[in-house]
Design a protein around this nucleic acid. Structure first.
Ligand code: FES
Ligand code: FES
Lengths: 155, 155
DNA sequence: AAATACAGGACCAATATGGTTCTGTATAGA
DNA sequence: TCTATACAGAACCATATTGGTCCTGTATTT
């Protein structure tokens, strides 16, 4: 279903929480409580994000995690890339052109690259900073349009 | 890695082959040979596409599959939807708003919906008809730009 | 020294995926 | 009418991935 892994999903959420108070440090325990994501998952993900350079960590009693860059400089693409690896619709797209042996007869590889680039661009267009603001369509903004019954097709 | 399943991948390829000669019928065996996808997979996928109304099938000696609609009227989103179900980055997005119990505290749900819609729109922008043409960046079009060494980041 | 909190991995159960196989039915043509 | 072709439908299995846990070690503050 073109799904994100839960790791990436949680990762986005966790960083969004952190970004609300940038510069401040947050413990794994605290973030797990706030997000209600399972603690072991949270610790695992925070470690990965640290290794990827998105978070900075401090050990010890007053330790915790804080943003390594400004919220404007972190995109959804960065986060997903850190937790799921390269953004690629298929294995063939992940590799360099020429890696797949059936490339010469493949009618979709080129189109898939175009699509992939477009999706990546979309993901790069959303920053952590923007995620601290309510999104278009968030409950608080939907109130006045709530009267018209929406029949959204989520396919 | 935001990956498509192989089913969807193959499905896109198979339909691209069919779309090259719209109106004409193609057998599973033939399409498997052309694409070099494993035959059992091909038959399975063609059946799914037929059930979803993207292909029409004729049984018997002169049977096979043919497009049910014009190539202009079939989008990548349609194909992926037929083979992987609703296009949704996460489970929460697949359901109606309100289904997830931690929605009130979730800082990303709204943003994820926006992203999801953008991705879906991108996928809807590519039709089967366009896939019968060479894509931007396809080998034949890359020749004149091949001199400049490209260092594309495929993250 | 003691408590806190991250680092790094090994580990496991459940699920999803890719792939196969079998039985049945419709159609064309000899 | 009989046979070969080709799709329909579904059960089935091996394996890879994922979500989730746990344990040992190290740094830091008090
Ligand atoms: S199958 Fe590898 S490029 Fe299309
Ligand atoms: S966790 Fe369900 S909406 Fe964010």
């Amino acid at each position: 279903m073109l799904r994100l892994t839960k790791q990436a999903d949680y990762g986005l959420g966790l960083l969004a929480f952190v970004a609300r108070k940038p510069g401040q440090t947050h413990t794994a325990r605290e973030l797990s409580a706030r997000s209600s994501y399972p603690l072991p998952m949270v610790t695992k993900i925070l470690k990965l994000l640290t290794r990827s350079g998105l978070l900075e960590s401090r050990r010890g009693v007053k330790g915790g995690y804080s943003l390594a860059r400004s919220p404007e400089a972190v995109t959804a693409a960065d986060i997903i890339h850190a937790l799921e690896g390269p953004i690629a619709l298929t294995g063939c797209i992940a590799g360099e052109p020429g890696d797949c042996d059936k490339e010469p007869i493949c009618p979709i590889q080129g189109h898939l690259r175009v699509l992939n680039d477009a999706i990546r661009a979309t993901l790069q267009g959303v920053t952590l900073a923007s995620m601290t603001l309510p999104a278009v369509g968030d409950p608080v903004l939907q109130i006045d349009s709530a009267t018209s019954t929406q029949s959204v097709c989520n396919k």
